[in-house]
Nucleic acid binder design. Structure first.
Lengths: 300, 300
DNA sequence: GTGAATTATGAATTAGATTCATATTAACGA
DNA sequence: TCGTTAATATGAATCTAATTCATAATTCAC
């Protein structure tokens, strides 16, 4: 027995309009096509659906049952369809985020708070633990958005620039280097550095300054939480380099001195990577737009 | 957006087998056909269902949702199908009965009690109030079976003979006619007759005897209930003619005398009319078979 | 019963689904 | 990283099945 949704729709239209003739309008088919189809359906299910030789067409008890089931099934299908219309247009969906940069929590949480106001239907989560394999996870659809400072050329992946930031040197006000107008690579050679617990090559300080200059600091201490880093630096247990936005938004900068790296300063850019096919989704656009503006919001 | 059940089945098969290649077995199609169909589905719903370029195929979050909905919908459709398989084979269905003969309640109830043991899934009901238009109601599918004594040649309708019965004259033991070996038409001319409240031409007594002989009884009193008729006749308030099965099965015949109509007796047949298309249904066959045997069951 | 409207049917046509042949792409082991 | 194998994608050809067209058969209302 082969039944398709098309057939259910036909039966429903015939029943609702009361005749094959009038059903033609709803179904955009000729009366002949409907008649052929009705015969096919009758053959398939082997039960008379309409009382024969009556007009307007009257349902048989079996026909009535079919109609009721058909309405249930078709409404389920319609729900499914509109669900996909929503998914496609970005009214709803999933946005799992992987972050390659540790400090990004500082601006990401405020962004997501704002985001929730716009898209309460979107399932948002931050996936920790795949910082290094983030882009791979994006391709695998394990996550839907990656915050990264290292754009690559990848098929199906788009990097959207979010904002430019400046890695800033911080030390205690009592620190020797607090007298300098700016900090250079060599200055780190005898310093205790406090960083996030990630490999060197993923830290701005090393990327931009120390690795090119071939300089090793005196020691490296790895700390998870930004506020603890600030605390330790304030207490003169070491120095650090953090993105400027962290220092703008933090209330624990009173005992700190901030300096540029190198005379003319340094800069980095942050990107959000998404699958190209997702980039038109409404909620992705909202996220990108909110992220681009988040720094000015935080500083006021 | 056009989705058919076929497509849901395809997606489901791909997911369950993990590859287009293996899905070919389930679907009895070539890998190429499945691939084309998959592309069509993708175009229709506009959302990537499987993570591209991965093997074994992995569902995207959207794909997972589709699978879940597809399983719901297809199971609903399967239920519908098996429902119709049952309906077609007569495992289940509706059997609304119209009776043209008043006394038939006497044997019909016992039949239906037995019937329920065999077919608890069949929706049984007796539809009163359309005694005269019963056959019409059968054609309109308002009822599914008619008990009738007057078979006709009608397109799509079959009359199945149930049993032969004898209309029997009854009177009080004290009644004058109780001495007679049998009763003739003329004997009714000075009698008070008690009958069911239906037109004369639908009563055996008039059909078989009085109308042909052109004889009018002294009076006619119409009574609904068989037991009340028996009561009144017992009390010598009049005489009546009832089918033999009523008298066999009744416990209120002690004060009655029973006589044949005419010297060699009379006989009538009862029929069950059904739509030809229903006559192969299991439960209809059961009903016919039970009805044919009911009289011997009642008399024991 | 007659005419108007509706449904059914067969043949012709058309659309669309499937296959075949083959190119492309991933997966795995050396 | 390369070659090998297996799987998927694709285009054209084919075939199936749905739709239309033309028309016959029914039904309904007056």
């Amino acid at each position: 027995m082969n039944i398709e949704l098309k057939h259910l729709r036909t039966i429903l239209a015939i029943h609702k309009t009361g005749s094959l003739q009038r059903a033609t309008e709803q179904l955009n088919m000729t009366q002949s096509a409907i008649s052929h189809q009705l015969r096919y359906i009758r053959e398939q299910i082997g039960v008379e659906l309409f009382v024969p030789e009556t007009r307007p067409l009257k349902l048989s008890p079996e026909g009535l049952e079919l109609i009721e089931a058909a309405e249930r099934i078709l409404s389920e299908v319609d729900k499914l369809k509109s669900r996909f219309v929503d998914l496609r247009s970005g009214q709803t969906g999933r946005m799992f985020i992987a972050i390659e940069c540790h400090a990004c929590f500082e601006w990401l949480f405020p962004v997501l708070n704002l985001f929730r106001d716009h898209h309460s239907n979107v399932d948002v989560d931050i996936k920790p633990g795949l910082a290094f394999k983030a882009i791979e996870a994006l391709q695998n659809e394990e996550v839907d958005l990656v915050i990264s400072a290292d754009p690559e050329e990848l098929a199906g992946i788009e990097f959207h620039e979010l904002f430019t930031y400046e890695p800033i040197f911080i030390a205690s006000r009592n620190h020797l280097l607090s007298k300098r107008p700016y900090i250079d690579a060599e200055d780190f050679a005898d310093q205790n550095i406090i960083t996030y617990p990630v490999p060197k090559e993923r830290l701005d300080l090393f990327n931009l300054l120390l690795l090119p200059a071939g300089i090793e600091p005196l020691s490296i201490r790895q700390i998870e939480l930004t506020s603890v880093i600030l605390l330790l630096v304030s207490a003169n247990k070491g120095v650090s380099v953090l993105p400027d936005w962290v220092l703008q938004s933090s209330r624990e900068t009173d005992h700190l001195t901030q300096k540029r790296l190198t005379k003319k300063g340094t800069s980095r850019k942050l990107y959000a990577a998404v699958r190209r096919r997702d980039s038109e989704k409404l909620y992705i656009k909202t996220f990108l737009s909110l992220s681009k503006n988040i720094l000015s919001r935080l500083s006021t």
